[in-house]
């Protein structure tokens, strides 16, 4: 009995095996492997164009991998559409903020619960019992989420009117509204000032402690990564060049040469 329990626990949230992605003749990702457990906080770094966002696009189902397999909680996601992958518990944010600009903050959170609306077109026309009940639940949940994220006062605002840092926060809140098991953050600190970055670090740590979610993030700000992650993977030109704890990565010669260039010319 205990053994079964342990076994269940040990299925990684995300497993990537021998993943390769080629665009025409260009190999964007080569032989990528990773396994993320529950409640991990992992980093993915690399110079520009290294293929970091491509990995995220593959995991969220935007591309079909040329080779290899991605499994979410043990289930392969091959041939699934992005919205189906999201429904399995993978949420993400984007490098450039992608909120719905003409929808209120509340609606942004509500619409992101689309996969578990539990009603369809005819319910929405007839305003059935199911519809009313689910709408009330969705609104309540969205309000709760805004409350814990301290965004409730912006409820009826449009995202464009919010400060940049708050928009980031809202995008993360929206991602969490899909109840993810895995949260992918693509450069959450991009475009933030140093004050906002400190807030972001606190926010991510708080999410990590509060929600039952494994976080995987891409970031260029090394201080953010050093502070948050317990494991970092480094890729360059699609190849994994190093992985380990932040301390190990900081001193790793391959990482230093990838970032600063090779002086042995």
């Amino acid at each position: 009995m205990t053994q079964l329990h342990v076994q269940e626990k040990s299925v990684p949230v995300l497993e990537i095996e021998n993943l390769s992605q080629r665009f025409g003749g260009l190999t964007a990702i080569a032989n990528f492997n990773i396994a993320l457990g529950e409640n991990d906080l992992t980093g993915l770094i690399g110079p520009n164009g290294a293929g970091k966002t491509t990995v995220f696009n593959l995991v969220s189902g935007f591309y079909q991998p040329s080779e290899g397999e991605i499994r979410i909680g043990g289930t392969p996601i091959a041939k699934l559409k992005p919205h189906q992958v999201t429904a399995m518990g993978v949420a993400r944010t984007f490098q450039n903020i992608r909120l719905w600009s003409d929808m209120t903050v509340l609606d942004n959170i509500r619409v992101a619960q689309h996969y578990r609306l539990g009603y369809g077109f005819f319910h929405s026309i007839l305003r059935s019992k199911t519809y009313q009940q689910r709408e009330a639940e969705i609104t309540k949940e969205a309000n709760n989420l805004l409350e814990v994220f301290d965004l409730i006062r912006y409820r009826d605002e449009f995202p464009g009117n919010l400060p940049y840092g708050t928009q980031r926060k809202l995008e993360i809140a929206r991602a969490l509204s899909v109840h993810p098991k895995l949260l992918l953050l693509d450069e959450p600190a991009a475009g933030l000032n140093s004050n906002d970055i400190q807030d972001l670090i606190r926010l991510i740590r708080w999410i990590h402690n509060t929600f039952d979610v494994s976080i995987w993030m891409i970031e260029h700000h090394m201080d953010v990564m050093m502070e948050l992650c317990n494991h970092i993977k480094v890729i360059d030109f699609g190849e994994t060049i190093a992985e380990g704890s932040p301390e190990e990565i900081r001193k790793h010669p391959a990482v230093i040469s990838a970032y600063l260039g090779d002086d042995t010319l």
């Binding site: 999201t86 719905w100 003409d102 929808m103 619409v111 689309h114 996969y115």
Partner: peptide, 19 residues
Amino acid sequence: KGVSAICQDEVAAEIMSVN
């Protein structure tokens, strides 16, 4: 409102579980 989500950002709509 998924309709407006598609209008404003189709990629975000798909990734936030809108079919």
